[in-house]
Design a protein around this nucleic acid. Structure first.
Lengths: 215, 215
DNA sequence: CCAGGGTTAGCATGTTCATGCGGCGCGAGC
DNA sequence: GCTCGCGCCGCATGAACATGCTAACCCTGG
């Protein structure tokens, strides 16, 4: 029963048969122990396992809160545990949501058992396991993004800070107070920013700066 | 000499010894053929191989233009070829740059030969091979991003279009002309946007919209 | 020492914006 | 029908902004 020095795994999966199958697989594999198996996120969050898991396998499609929505909650509840999405769901927005919320990796349910155990180990040791299909989607996602510009070399720290303030809705006066300089100085900064970014308004500047990753 | 039905690989790598080592590895592996080996990106772009490669292995640190900068050029020159970064460079911005410019994958030079060949095959078949370290960096990158908001359901197409115009530096007047409505209508839209986004200035609205992925 | 460049600052002017108020037409539903 | 919401339009006012001109202050290099 005890996990001993084995890798502790918790499981969140609504389908009973699948859950039991995974539990059997994990418990039956040397070096692995299934310390908990939940049918929903809510259950997992309210009934913590006796032993803190090294890895939480989290299904996406769950009754109640979806797995991709609750990654951050799980991470906060199980401090030190890695969250590994394990799902049939290949939806891009779910992948993004999961990863943004701190999932360590994202693997598909049709992964062969041996591979799955490898992935779990990889996640536990700080890696980022992804099924090939998922990796492809992630990489494809990047190529739809603009290449981060390298005009940051031009922009000085103070100007970047000002840009951040402007993006947060500050006006000249507010930004000036926040930065401890006079309004007129802010005007100067803005002027210089406009020249460097080749723009003529706050909003355009903020837009370019955000897209260039300066903020 | 001929590639026959083997997987055609081109190589861009400035270090002579490394280049030859990879060439020998590839040519010596059944199912693989090295159809070209270049010492620089410029060379690769000006002297196309006799046979179009299936995969181009691209080093990052090259004399002249860096590999990560020229991924798109390679992709354009070698239509249909996958570009696979092969480098010791683990710099995050280089990874991002490469992937944004269309690299199919990103693997490290210390990859064992057998694994390397696997990766090449994976890239050729439309996959996205990544070394574990790279995958970890990519996933970590996501968790620094904000989770895409789902308030877009609130924002109507016209308002989104207006936001895009404002982000591009248009004023009320310009946006109105662009959209074929009166300035006052634009004011209405802006008002409604401000309410939905809970902001009080163009720049803040643009900032929130960009971060939420509405544009 | 002085020249030149970057930083901070001030001021003035015309423009644009934020926001409160009101009005017209049109389709949905009572 | 009639009202209600909503997309569209108009006006007005005080605030914020964009931009041109000027200048003190510090560096750093000649």
């Amino acid at each position: 029963m005890s996990a001993g020095d084995r890798l502790r795994v918790a499981l969140v999966e609504d389908d009973r048969r699948t859950r039991e199958a995974f539990r059997v697989l994990i418990d039956g594999s040397p070096g692995f122990a299934c310390v908990a198996a939940y049918g929903s996120l809510e259950e997992a969050l309210h009934v913590p396992p006796h032993e803190p898991p090294d890895v939480v396998l989290l299904d996406i499609k769950l009754p109640g809160m979806w797995g991709s929505e609750g990654v951050d909650l799980v991470a906060k509840r199980f401090v030190g545990s890695k969250v590994l999405m394990l799902t049939a769901f290949e939806d891009e927005s779910r992948i993004v949501e999961s990863l943004c919320k701190g999932a360590a990796g994202y693997i598909l349910k049709d992964t062969p058992p041996a591979r799955l155990l490898e992935y779990i180990r990889e996640a536990a040791s700080g890696g980022a396991p992804m099924s090939p299909e998922v990796a492809r989607k992630v990489v494809a996602l990047f190529s739809t993004l603009a290449v981060p510009q390298r005009l940051d070399c031009e922009v000085k720290p103070q100007e970047a800070r000002l840009l951040a303030l402007l993006a947060d809705g500050y006006g000249y006066q507010g930004a000036a107070e926040e930065m401890g300089v006079s309004v007129n100085t802010v005007r100067s900064y803005v002027r210089s920013i406009y020249e460097k970014l080749q723009v003529h308004s706050k909003s355009e500047a903020v837009s370019k700066a955000l897209r260039a990753g300066l903020i």
